[in-house]
């Protein structure tokens, strides 16, 4: 296969995943959330149980006027949604779907790349929060910055633990060395990574920066039309990314009870959707945290647990 063809197929595959997975997760969020609240959720768009609701939403968003507030910093304001979306797209590039190089772009330090690029997302929040010229947006932006800076630390520490256990930073390499008993060994890191990941994508119960009921969606307050649609899209891609990273790092990626070689991609997808379901489930079940509770959870619970996990990992690694 010539290089350019392979490259096109790989990038095309990632783009397809980028366009479908978030929509599936978004639709699942609509329906799961509705049923958990004793409702039906969307029922009309697309005739069968409202399967086309998000597409209909998209069509609606396209028709809306694109408003930029007069006092806003125009270029920054208009660029921010793009900056919010691109990092997650880049992360999808390095997440392995199955064995034998079934990945957008295999990177030797894929884990590091993923964490670094996810961290760039906070710049977008600050950009949109500040450039909107709105005090609620600014509050949201500042809250987001404080939250993301804090939760980056346990996220990286938990990921470091599993990288230490596997002895590699390559995501495929981590899945290859993964063994079922790691579920027990790395359980604290799994918890820390998952919670910090949910906080990193600002999902409820960690959605203080958005806080629809108090800040009117924080940094997104002033956005309309297509630009406004990009933020929820980025949020859904964020769910997919965090679920996929959790799957690959802690749940064994493509390893399953049977048929790893030809069904690996299916195992990965099943696990990604299961973790996404848990993220949605958390949103329905728990109320939003307060700012002090948020910081307390990060610095007094997650960081110490992650550090303890690092020590444990090192101890087991040396003992073996």
């Amino acid at each position: 296969m010539p290089l350019w063809l392979e490259l096109t197929i790989r990038v095309g595959g990632v783009v397809v995943a980028f366009l479908t997975l978030p929509l599936i997760v978004g639709q699942a969020e609509h329906k799961v959330m509705a049923h958990m609240q004793g409702r039906l959720g969307p029922m009309y768009a697309g005739a069968f149980h409202g399967w086309a609701q998000l597409i209909a939403d998209g069509v609606k968003f396209v028709q809306k006027e694109d408003v930029t507030p007069r006092a806003a910093d125009r270029p920054v304001f208009q660029l921010a949604p793009l900056v919010a979306l691109v990092p997650y797209l880049l992360v999808l590039l390095v997440i392995p779907l199955g064995p034998d190089d079934l990945v957008g772009q295999a990177l030797d330090i894929g884990l590091f790349f993923a964490l670094a690029v996810v961290g760039v997302g906070v710049v977008a929040v600050l950009m949109s929060g500040w450039a909107s010229a709105n005090k609620y947006s600014l509050l949201g932006g500042l809250r987001a910055a404080a939250q993301l800076l804090g939760y980056e630390l346990p996220l990286v520490l938990a990921a470091a633990s599993v990288a230490m256990a596997a002895g590699t930073l390559s995501l495929s390499g981590i899945v290859e060395t993964w063994e079922p008993w790691w579920l027990l060994w790395q359980a604290p890191a799994l918890g820390v990574f998952f919670i910090a990941g949910v906080a990193e994508i600002r999902r409820p119960p960690f959605d203080l920066p958005l806080a629809r009921s108090e800040l009117g969606f924080g940094d997104r307050t002033q956005y309309t039309g297509l630009r406004d649609a990009v933020f929820p899209l980025a949020a859904y891609v964020g769910i997919v990314v965090i679920a996929a990273l959790t799957t690959v790092l802690f749940l064994g990626g493509w390893q399953g009870p049977f048929g790893d070689d030809y069904l690996g991609w299916l195992w990965t997808l099943v696990k990604v959707f299961a973790v996404s379901f848990v993220i949605i489930w958390l949103r329905v079940s728990y109320p939003r945290l307060r700012e002090d509770q948020l910081q307390r959870l990060c610095w007094l619970v997650l960081v110490p647990v992650a550090l303890a996990q690092l020590v444990l990992t090192a101890a087991v690694k040396i003992a073996m």
Binding site: F112, F113, W130, L138, G141
Partner: peptide
């Protein structure tokens, strides 16, 4: 490679965010 991604993680992800944070505060 490694230094490049450390640069993105530490500088873009943390240092610049801190600077922007300070500018806004």
């Amino acid at each position: 490679e490694l230094v490049a991604w450390v640069q993105v993680l530490i500088y873009v992800g943390a240092v610049v965010v801190l600077l922007l944070f300070a500018v806004m505060l």
